[in-house]
Design a protein around this nucleic acid. Structure first.
Lengths: 330, 330
DNA sequence: TTGTATGCGTTATCAA
DNA sequence: TTGATAACGCATACAA
């Protein structure tokens, strides 16, 4: 069933049929009705491939993320996909993992599938070594690349992120103001946003004489965190606060505190990051930094539409965060 | 840059070029080298739309799920996508929500995009009223439909699910054996698998004289659960065990117990479902039913490949579950 | 307002 | 082993 069959059935030319399908106004009501009737009767659907070939677009966006099962990324995927579809675009999802070669390969794959743009969800796509970001810059020569929570200065690359540096800086300062002196920072990733968070934490100590802090890079396995904190305790006996780069790590910190019978928040403050569902699932419920993932995602889709529209949009859009106070801080 | 440019550059016909691209053996090493050199030199990539038009396939599978941010569905999406890509297929993700008309519309949309098959993740796609499942049956006339955790008996529809009925039946019986008498069952969804779980729970009471039980349909908001359990307490004062249709609800039950200072597992047993990350994030860690989501998903993709291959596949594949005992049961 | 002719970049069929 | 040519189904410029 194709355009010719429909045209024949309706007794019009294929051009007229095309006008009806695509909602052109330049067609008389009578002929439009004829065509619509024929379409209805036959259950005809336009062939998307042929359409794509002619228009050089199937209105499809590639979504790249390391791991769709990660609670934070999953939420972002959900929002991005929904927003895109509201705009008439479908999403091809590609879970790349964290290895560079796989990320490159998958981005290439999406481009070969002729997607109209790619949205990279997660700061892990921007590498520390600038040469490793060439794959993004090359891709951006063909289609717009949108990066969520990462920043890369390149043509046709548009970034939207939350102010992670300020967030960790502010919460650390805030806790210092509550007479907290000994801080431990837990993190897992040294991605773009991972580094921002870490420097925010570090910089907070610049003018604090009586404070001290340690940084600990945890393994991916949350169950190991308890032992890892134990081991740092030997050289850093007092811990008043643990700031974590995500909520899952913060849950690990809570489990450590529980095992060592350290009462929260009286003797220890714990702060998470992301304001994910983990924050309310956990007991006690986590004080955490809300980086407004949904706003970031909506901004990205909105910006992408404007790029398609030929508008000039900022290459870097930074959104502020909010502290959500629950049960793990005073 | 298209097939003609490459052919001209290599000094061969477009047919020969096509043979090289598609790995046909019927081409001499010399000409193959010429073509490959031309491709390499120009950085040519075949046009996927034109290819799709010719082959009537772009090797794309539609994934339908209600909510990609749900921890359970997100995990399934991740596995399905990864497995599909291993087989050379891309995935178009569509988050439909739970409303029937949206599900119908989105399935239709995927078909109009000419996907090779659709994978429905989540038992919410099979409706109670059989007439409402017509949209699936109709779709299956065009492409294979794979259903994860739901069952529908129709041509070209293939289902893979875990034995949820047996799971709740067994755990309830098991707890009865430990002198537990008063059971509360908490659930949110009346989907296909939701109903199976509920009947498993109910049937466990058939030959138990001294036992009693209640069922409570919770609202979606987990924070309401505490109040909802409180209210049932008035007509059902003693609760020895709470069985939940998913881990998130179980966390709600834990929060209720904590608020009422009921010690777990000594005075109350709580059992979750899914063995999701929530089970280990929560405190105490949840005893839960592992329905082996990963195995189910892998089976589905594997079966789909066999369907494409023209093999005869069972229309219903049931996998057994396992109980994972942690801290919320004796 | 409607119809005709052509291009989009492949794959596939049939000869050579 | 290679090449010419016909589909594939649609959009659109141009003509009527």
């Amino acid at each position: 069933m194709n355009i010719y069959d429909i045209s024949k059935k309706a007794g019009v030319s294929i051009a007229t049929r095309s006008r009806v399908i695509n909602g052109s106004t330049k067609v008389s009501p009578a002929t439009r009705a004829k065509v619509l009737a024929a379409i209805e009767e036959t259950g005809y659907t336009p062939n998307a491939f042929a359409r794509g070939l002619g228009l050089n677009s199937m209105r499809t966006i590639g979504i790249l993320c390391a791991d769709a099962s990660d609670i934070y990324l999953a939420n972002a995927i959900y929002i991005v996909e929904s927003e895109l579809r509201d705009q008439g675009y479908n999403s091809i999802l590609c879970c790349t993992g964290y290895a560079l070669d796989k990320k490159q390969k998958d981005l290439q794959l999406l481009i070969s599938k002729r997607v109209d743009a790619v949205v990279m969800i997660g700061s892990n796509y921007v590498e520390s070594d600038d040469r490793d970001n060439n794959y993004i810059i090359e891709a951006a020569k063909k289609i717009p690349i949108m990066i969520i929570n990462g920043y890369l200065d390149a043509t046709n690359v548009y970034c939207c992120l939350s102010d992670d540096y300020q967030a960790t800086f502010d919460i650390t300062k805030k806790l210092m103001g509550k007479n907290i002196k000994y801080f431990l920072y837990l993190y897992r990733s040294e991605s773009y946003s991972g580094k921002k968070k870490l420097s925010g934490f570090r910089d907070a100590f610049e003018d604090c004489q009586h404070c001290d802090h340690r940084e600990l890079k945890c393994t991916v396995e949350i169950t190991d965190i308890v032992n890892q904190i134990d081991s740092i305790k030997q050289s850093f006996p007092t811990i008043d606060a643990i700031i974590c780069s995500d909520d899952e790590i913060a849950v690990g910190a809570l489990k450590w505190a529980k095992k060592n019978k350290i009462s929260i928040p009286t003797r220890l403050s714990v702060v998470g990051f992301n304001n994910s569902k983990y924050a309310t699932i956990s007991t006690p419920e986590l004080t955490t930094i809300d980086n407004h993932c949904d706003s970031v995602c909506k901004n990205v889709v909105n910006n992408l539409m404007r790029v398609f529209n030929g508008e000039n949009i900022p290459k870097k859009l930074m959104l502020s965060t909010d502290l959500v106070i629950r049960e793990t801080t005073k």
